[in-house]
């Protein structure tokens, strides 16, 4: 059982991690993350790289949808903007990868701000529909702006290299994507310790009251869109480098639904939720694949049912969590934690 943890200064009480137990766990987690590539095989490294990219994008979407309450179905399209920017720069300028990555994120931010403009006029459901419209228009551009995107053929991207090491494999790429992911998550967590994060939540909970209390709604809504698409841009750029090839099919509307599902399943409006949701949703298809493999001797054309099964399960997860656990895995996690805090006493 854990009891109170006294503080001597307000800075200490405002810290992100406030108890010693939390710090112990944090260091343990860090140690695991560092040791991981030395023990895991390529398949599991590949998965963790993919999870990291998805965590970045899901965190961005959670800032916009979970914290600010602006439902977006455009996250995948904004990732596409980041990915295409990176791919174009990689093929045409030869600039170093981190410049490309930032440029991709910047371009995604710009597009996200434009796509967020309807949020100044409409909210809630209308906005969600506007983001569907925006992603269709972007998809159209990916397909038809041949001189830049090479249309449906797609673009290949050279793997990035750092200090002479080419990051062309999950085991090397891990050292790029993992630190970026950790930093992006920490930045998001920091945001919600400040006036900006509070303004976001206030807009979600009661936008008009927030405005009367001094929150400039258009400014903060657009800022939230900008941040979400910046995250999407970084994730998209990493995606392009990680897979080495992109085409318009890489960023379908279904992928935006995937990210929406991730934050619903993980928990909207919590940083932990984005992480748990992205892990869960990335692993689900793998688990399904595993299940189908086991069943393959007993059913016909097992490989063909994998994709529809995945689609149906994504949908079922969205529906199931919204019906039965609307606060997501993060809430389950919190309950488990509280149980151990108070152990052996029960509440």
């Amino acid at each position: 059982m854990r009891i109170g943890s006294p503080k001597e200064s307000y800075i200490a009480d405002e810290a992100l991690f406030r108890t010693r137990t939390q710090w112990v766990w944090l260091w343990l987690l860090l140690a695991v993350l560092i040791a991981y590539p030395f023990v895991a095989n390529l398949y599991w490294l590949f998965l963790v790289c993919l999870i990291s990219i998805n965590i970045i994008s899901a965190t961005g979407l959670n800032i916009l949808t979970g914290y600010t309450g602006q439902v977006s179905l455009g996250q995948a399209a904004f990732m596409g903007v980041g990915a295409y920017t990176v791919a174009w720069l990689d093929n045409n300028t030869g600039s170093p990868f981190f410049i490309n990555l930032l440029a991709g994120a910047g371009m995604a931010t710009l597009v996200g701000l434009i796509a967020g403009l309807p949020s100044l006029r409409v909210k809630g459901l209308y906005l969600a529909i506007a983001t569907i419209g925006a992603s269709f228009i972007l998809q159209f551009i990916f397909i038809n702006w041949e001189s830049v995107t090479r249309g449906t053929r797609g673009i290949n991207i050279e793997p990035p290299s750092v200090l002479g090491v080419t990051l062309d494999n999950p085991d090397t790429f891990y050292w790029l994507v993992m630190p970026i992911m950790v930093v992006m998550v920490l930045l998001a967590a920091n945001l919600f310790r400040t006036r900006i994060g509070r303004a976001f939540i206030a807009i979600r909970d009661r936008d008009i009251s927030a405005s009367v209390l001094g929150i400039n709604l258009p400014f903060y809504k657009l800022m939230s869109f900008g941040i979400a698409s910046f995250y999407a841009g970084i994730a998209g750029g990493l995606y392009a480098y990680f897979f080495g090839a992109i085409n318009p099919e890489s960023f379908p509307l279904l992928m935006s639904i995937f990210f929406l599902a991730a934050i619903i399943v993980g928990g909207m409006g919590t940083i932990l939720g984005s992480i748990l949701g992205a892990i869960f949703m990335t692993l689900t298809p793998e688990i399904l694949r595993y299940g189908v493999d086991i069943l393959s001797p007993y059913i016909d054309n097992a490989p063909q049912i994998l994709s529809p099964l995945r689609t149906a399960v994504f949908g079922a997860l969205i529906v199931g969590f919204l019906l039965f656990e609307p606060h997501g895995l993060a809430e389950i996690w919190r309950r488990v934690r509280r149980f151990f805090h108070l152990w052996p006493f029960r509440t």
Binding site: V71, L73, G124, L260, A261, A312, F314, G315, I318
Partner: peptide
Amino acid sequence: PISVFMVTIGLGSILIGM
């Protein structure tokens, strides 16, 4: 209403899969 809206997105996905 946003939860209900997202539920219908999930339903759509389930129907496609089925």
